[in-house]
Structures are given as C-alpha cells and as structure tokens.
C-alpha cells in the first residue's frame, strides 16, 4: 500500500448467494495453484489477442492490482508490467503488495471484463468495491473494456484444437449457471421471505423474480444450451 491510502476497516460486501458461492465452498480445500494453468492460458490469450490491454496499462506498469472474486476462496494478482506481465492465483494477498484491490462477485467481474455492464454503474450501485489507488483501477477497467474481450470466444481460440470442445463446454456451463442462478434467486427469495413483513411487497417481489426467471430461461434457450 502506498502512503496516504486508507485501508478498509470493514469486510467487503457480502457475496451474493449464488452457484459461484457454492463452487467456492467446493474449491475451498483445493490449493489455488491447481487453477494457475487457466490463468496462464488467459495471459497468453491477452498477449496474443489483446496486446492493447497491456499497452494501455503501460503507464501503470509498477502498480499491481488484486482482483478478489468475493464468492471464491482465492484472489488473482495482476501485474501489468508489459515486460513481464503476470496473472497469478493465490489464496490471499497482503494489501501491501498491491496498489489496489477490486472486490466483487465473479459473475460481475466477468461481465465487466466482457464490457457487458457499465463499470461506473456497477460502482454507483456498490456491487464493486475498490480499495487503494483508484487511478490504476480506472485504467484497468478502461483497458479491458477497450479490448472487446469475449472470454469464451477468446479462450477457445487460445486453446487451438481443443477450442471447439471448450466452447461447447463453456457454453453449456454458462447456460447451466444462468439457470442455476435463476433457481437460486427463487430459493433466496423464499429464504428471505419470512423476514419481509409487507406481504404485498413480498408477492410483487416474487412475481418480479418469476418474470426474471422466465426471461433467463428464454435467454438460455435462445443460446441453444438449455
């Protein structure tokens, strides 16, 4: 951490109850290094297909960032040094080691990386929490948004002959995750329901969630993976 920065006094936002959270629980006993090959492949993909990300980060070469998917039991250290960029998965990172940390649920972080959601809007709604040097985080957000990343497409290309299989698998996984997410929303609504006193508000909420669920199922079907 740099001088003048303020360390968080509170734990970052509680992760949403989601399939990713369960995945996180399942991954807990595992050594995070097991996942390192995925991030090595991702870095190779970035160097090959999106070198402009590193170019845009050139001014911030000495400011590593910690990316913390709040629903998974590991964090990712991103070192944007264009000479020796690194994407390293770890159990945890000492805040002293990095210029900034981005906390957020995995699904939000992926949507952000793919430019599917507006970073400012996410921050306005507090689904992302930023600690430390805001400048490097803004630079990273802009660099990634500018690259036009499509994680499934890009990773398939990176994996060469296995790309087609990966694409099918990833597509199925995303479809599954979408549907599970929708189911979990319903379950979550049911779990929190007793706490909600206003019965009318409750039923409106459940109706809205059911609508959302339908929409998600439709979207998954259109994607051809349901």
């Amino acid at each position: 951490m740099r001088p003048g920065q303020v360390r968080s006094a509170a734990k970052p936002a509680t992760p949403p109850f989601s399939p990713v959270l369960l995945l996180g629980l399942a991954l807990k006993p595992m050594r995070p290094q097991v996942l390192q090959p995925i991030f090595d492949a991702m870095l190779r993909m970035i160097r090959r297909r999106h070198p402009d990300i590193l170019e845009r980060m050139a001014d911030y070469a000495d400011r590593p960032v910690c990316i913390d998917p709040t629903d998974l039991p590991f964090v990712i250290l991103l070192d944007p040094n264009p000479e020796a960029p690194a994407l390293i998965v770890r159990r945890e990172i000492d805040p002293e080691e990095v210029a900034a940390t981005i906390h957020g649920p995995l699904a939000t972080l992926i949507a952000l990386a793919e430019g599917k959601v507006d970073g400012d809007a996410l921050f306005f709604s507090r689904r992302l929490i930023i600690e430390g040097d805001t400048e490097v985080v803004v630079a990273l957000r802009n660099a990634i948004d500018g690259a036009g990343i499509d994680l499934v497409e890009d990773m398939s290309a990176q994996l060469g002959p296995f790309g087609k299989a990966f694409r099918g698998l990833a597509g199925a996984a995303i479809g599954l995750a979408d549907r599970m997410q929708a189911d979990f929303e319903t379950l979550r609504a049911a779990l929190i329901a007793p706490a909600v006193k206003d019965v009318d508000a409750q039923s409106a909420r459940i109706a809205a969630l059911e609508g959302e669920l339908k929409q998600l199922r439709k979207a998954a079907r259109r994607g051809g993976v349901a």
Binding site: G4, Q5, V6, S8, A9, A10, P12, R126, I129, I130, E131, D133, T134, E135, V137, V138, A139
Partner: peptide
Amino acid sequence: SPAGEVRYTETHAGVTSELSGFTINKF
C-alpha cells in the same frame, strides 16, 4: 476530479469518498 486523487474508505458506517484528502461525500 482525477481518479489518482480519489480514495474510497469503507467503514462500518459506510463509504467515504475523498478527493486529495477533502471529503466529497459519505454514503
């Protein structure tokens, strides 16, 4: 209001946003 001068501080009472050390808002 450049990003390099922005700091967010999370506390149990919420978030404070600062610009060059001046508190701009508390949420």
